[in-house]
Design a protein around this nucleic acid. Structure first.
Length: 289
DNA sequence: AGCCAGGCAAGTG
DNA sequence: CACTTGCATGGC
């Protein structure tokens, strides 16, 4: 297997993979959010990707090209440059100083989509459990690094799953979102490839054709799998952050707030969202209801 | 025992 | 367009 090495001062791998943005990575031992090994794996194009931080070096083992590895972990982004271009803000400066090295991953479209179809009215650890249960039930069992793991199903594989079978995994009413959206993709009525040709506004409208994809899920999937770094998902936490620290940007309508934050933070608004979101959840910055 | 969680679609006025 | 309602499940 190929091996790539990167300076780990540029990325906090553990934080990046466990902050709740991705559901597509796992630890070899232990749950993603608890204690366990510091060796992580995911898949891209069916190929495993193993990442580990040791002695100040990020080591990635995979058959994938270096370009794809850089893309998956967003190693091309110059964090200093991103933060220097945001308007001055005490909340953001504190978040950045505490969470330096947090990067916006880029997962595969389909597994990312299904995770966020599961996300409405749900806590992050349970979304992760749903993702892993779906992989175990409908994905392929494969050996990675000598361990038996499950690759998340491709659309044609998950298309075999009935709504009832999904409900048995505890996904509740989200089963309908998964079944209908998977069906659209599997029978060729929806292609995410086209998203890459579009600007952000067009892409958001396009992806909302999928059943169960509203404003918030659209922004998550565009940000975390399609490289639209201007996407700023506004969930309950993000909403509270904006209200507390950027009241002038707050609005009751999602689209209006979205427009405001994108205009305020610019092309990398998603990075501001990710740092503020995680800082709020970690009590690094305060938020009011 | 209620209440709530990274919202969404469908229905009504 | 603005506003309301129902929705599954598990943890606290």
């Amino acid at each position: 297997m190929g091996e790539y090495r990167f300076k780990s001062e540029d990325i906090d791998l553990e934080l990046t993979l466990t902050c709740g943005q991705t559901f597509c990575w796992n630890r070899f031992e232990g749950g993603l959010y608890g204690e366990g090994s510091d060796r992580f794996y995911s898949f891209r194009n069916g190929e495993p990707l193993i990442a580990e931080e040791k002695d100040g070096v990020l080591v990635v083992e995979t058959e994938l090209s270096e370009k794809e590895v850089r893309k998956a972990l967003d190693l091309e982004t110059d964090l200093d440059k991103v933060f220097s271009e945001f308007p001055e803000s005490e909340a953001l400066e504190r978040s950045v100083s505490e969470l330096w090295g947090l990067r916006i991953i880029s997962d595969e479209f389909f597994p990312c989509l299904v995770s966020y179809l599961c996300s409405p009215q749900m806590r992050i650890p349970r979304i992760k459990k749903m993702h892993n249960d779906i992989a175990r039930q409908f994905g392929e069992e494969v050996e990675v690094d000598g361990k038996t793991v499950y690759r998340f199903p491709e659309p044609e594989e998950l298309a075999e799953a009935s709504e009832e079978a999904l409900r048995e995994l505890g996904v509740g009413y989200r089963a309908e979102y998964i079944v209908k959206s998977t069906e659209m993709i599997e029978n060729g009525h929806y292609s995410h490839e086209e998203l890459s040709e579009m600007n952000y506004e067009e892409a958001r409208e396009h992806i909302k054709q999928l059943y169960g994809v509203g404003d918030k899920v659209a922004d998550c999937v565009l940000l975390f799998s399609k490289g639209f770094h201007e996407a700023y998902p506004i969930d309950t936490w993000a909403q509270k952050c904006i209200k507390t620290h950027y009241p002038a940007l707050h609005h009751d309508k999602y689209e209006k707030t979205s427009e405001n934050v994108r205009e305020h933070f610019g092309q990398k608004a998603g990075y501001a969202q990710e740092y503020l979101f995680h800082a709020a959840r970690k009590d690094i910055i305060e938020v009011e209801d």
